[in-house]
């Protein structure tokens, strides 16, 4: 058996560091010791695979996937779409993308959320889909509202959708948050500002995409996701992959 082709090293100066005191909860939940860097083995370059039997086509439509008969969620109807690519700009097909979010008023359907904005009886707040053969995904949902949280006394999260992506390897596993173009809360948010690089922050802002809207029905935002790229196996293959 030969050495597996590794994934590119994660740029940890691009990601948020563990300890970010502006985001208070990180203070007691961040390791103090350095991470131990591993050259990858089969344990890291493999990961779970998912198929169409795992999910229902309705799972990607948050306007309807928790609605009662004939109902639909209240709020600004949006399509959230984009591609899952690797750092070599190659599409990642058939990978699982999961999302969760608050409703249009900023209220989560979660027993631990006691914010006074009401639950929407026709909105659950989670969805999932597989990317197609070109790495493309889309969801239909309502734009989430901003909500207050206990960090500083007057901290408000920008409108955001949480996103979980698998890729093909356990070392590509990623959870992030998608923000929306033009939101003045983005630059004020301690969680956004855990990311030191402004260009990296910008990579989390979905662009209004008028070309993808459905006229008289649903507006659209585009959010591409980039997972770690993979090296060619230098001594086994030509470098044509890179």
């Amino acid at each position: 058996m030969t050495t597996p082709a590794e994934f590119y090293e994660r740029d940890r100066a691009w990601h948020p560091p563990a300890q970010t005191p502006i985001y208070k909860t990180s203070v007691t939940r961040s390791p103090q010791y350095a991470l131990l860097s591993l050259q990858q083995s089969v344990s890291e370059i493999t990961g779970p695979t998912f198929g169409h039997t795992d999910i229902d086509p309705l799972d990607r439509d948050l306007i309807h996937n928790y609605a009662k008969d004939g109902g639909s969620a209240i709020g600004e109807r949006i399509i959230l779409h984009g591609r899952v690519l690797d750092e070599n700009a190659r599409p990642i097909p058939n990978t699982l993308v999961e999302i969760w979010q608050a409703n249009a008023g900023g209220r989560y359907r979660h027993k631990k959320d006691t914010y006074l904005a009401p639950i929407d009886p026709n909105f659950g707040g989670c969805g999932r889909t597989l990317t197609d053969e070109n790495g493309h995904y889309y969801f239909r949902t309502v734009k989430p509202g901003a909500y207050p949280w206990r960090n500083y006394v007057n901290s408000w999260r920008p409108a955001h959708i949480h996103m979980s992506i698998f890729g093909t390897a356990f070392c590509q596993r990623l959870i992030t948050q998608c923000y929306f173009e033009g939101d003045p809360l983005i630059e004020r948010c301690p969680i956004v500002n855990t990311i030191p690089d402004m260009a990296a922050q910008g990579q989390l802002v979905a662009a209004l995409d008028m070309n993808a809207t459905i006229p008289l029905d649903t507006i659209a935002y585009k959010f591409d996701i980039v997972l770690r790229g993979r090296r060619s196996t230098m001594f086994e293959n030509r470098l044509d992959g890179n």
């Binding site: 691009w14 990601h15 359907r109 979660h110 979980s164 990623l174 996701i225 997972l227």
Partner: peptide, 16 residues
């Protein structure tokens, strides 16, 4: 391309 930066899963990760 640059990898999409990580963000916390937050307190309501269970919803998704």
């Amino acid at each position: 391309l640059k990898e999409t930066p990580s963000q916390t899963a937050g307190p309501y990760v269970h919803i998704g």
